[in-house]
């Protein structure tokens, strides 16, 4: 804020009608001129009301709606969820009354083998989607960065999957994975000679976890590619030219220049995607409903079932808090690592 914004508002009506622009005006004085102009256009009714308010008060006035909204839809529900996690509350049986159960819900969640299974499934999904998306995304970005003929068209084509709705993607991949008529099975059969109807991507215990990894990778690799592309294009050409003068080969250039300079971008992409995939729900529900059995039942799917199908509100609140702390803690550690990489 400072002097620029304060002056015009406080003394809006005492400002001369037209302040001529100095041709050598600095950036700050340009902003001041804009602010003065805005102040002049402020209706007298409003100007009279805010006259006499301090900078800080005006600042609070501006951000108050956002703060209130945040408190109402973020902070309050979070505190309320923490409270509910210590009770046996059931949202569908409100009349039953609420009892304080202490840490019992947390104990139940942390000792439930099914929930640990969900966490393992989520871990598998995270690990492999991140691995594939980073490798393929970086590779595609590197290729697109070559500026070959038609690279713009290819960029658009590659970006298409991430523009679709996850529910739609999940749904149409169930058809692609269909053993008898599915395109995916047909292509695999065509190249390997295996009978397409002899394997079931979403019905097999062994293949289903990979089926969801493939679809997520197909959909979100373009996102990683886009961020990597931004990283690659931010590397100045003179660094490569200097490396060439120093006699560095392509491999050395890649390891010593390209990778280190793209790494912060890559890590940022991984952070965004990992948080998203930790919460992954819609795509997998449409694809497998968590099946066969519970083989692809991610933590978020089980959480939804506990909260809104079984209506164990207290228990699911504890589960949600545990997931929140997990992702929040991991993200914080990761961000610190990211900052260290950026400082190098």
């Amino acid at each position: 804020m400072g002097k620029v914004s304060a002056k015009p508002v406080l003394f809006a009506n005492s400002i001369p009608a037209q302040a001529p622009m100095d041709p050598e005006m600095t950036n700050s004085s340009a902003s001041e001129a804009v602010a003065i102009g805005a102040a002049k256009r402020t209706p007298e009714v409003i100007a009279r009301r805010v006259r006499g308010l301090s900078d800080r008060a005006i600042a609070w006035l501006f951000i108050a709606p956002t703060i209130v909204l945040l408190l109402a839809i973020n902070v309050f529900p979070l505190i309320w969820t923490v409270y509910l996690s210590f009770t046996n509350y059931k949202a569908n049986r409100a009349a039953r009354g609420v009892e304080w159960v202490g840490l019992d819900n947390y104990r139940r969640v942390l000792t439930d083998s099914d929930i640990w299974h969900n966490m393992l499934v989520t871990g598998h999904f995270l690990l492999w989607t991140m691995t594939f998306q980073v490798l393929i995304g970086f590779g595609l970005a590197w290729l697109i960065n070559k500026n070959f003929k038609g690279h713009g068209v290819w960029t658009t084509v590659i970006l298409l999957p991430m523009m679709l709705s996850p529910a739609v993607v999940g749904n149409f991949w169930t058809f692609l994975y269909q053993p008898q008529i599915g395109l995916f099975n047909y292509i695999v059969g065509f190249f390997t000679g295996v009978d397409p109807s002899s394997f079931e991507m979403i019905g097999s215990v062994n293949l289903a976890p990979w089926a969801i990894v493939i679809v997520d990778t197909w959909m979100w690799t373009p996102y990683v590619m886009l961020i990597c592309l931004a990283g690659l294009r931010s590397i100045p050409d003179y660094i490569y030219e200097a490396a060439e003068v120093d006699g560095a080969g392509p491999l050395r250039t890649f390891w010593s220049i390209t990778l280190p300079m793209v790494l912060p971008f890559l890590m940022l992409a991984v952070l965004f995607r990992a948080i998203e995939n930790f919460k992954m729900f819609d795509l997998v529900v449409e694809l497998t409903s968590g099946g066969p059995g519970s083989v692809t039942e991610l933590a978020s799917i089980n959480l939804k079932r506990e909260a809104f199908e079984k209506w164990r509100t207290g228990l699911s609140s504890a589960f949600a808090i545990i997931l929140f702390v997990t992702v929040f803690g991991a993200a914080n550690i990761y961000v610190k690592a990211l900052n260290r990489v950026k400082q190098r």
């Binding site: 994975y177 053993p179 008898q180 109807s197 002899s198 079931e200 979403i202 019905g203 099946g291 066969p292």
Partner: peptide, 8 residues
């Protein structure tokens, strides 16, 4: 005895 892919 079910058709292939009849898992859900």
């Amino acid at each position: 005895c079910t058709p292939p892919g009849y898992t859900d």
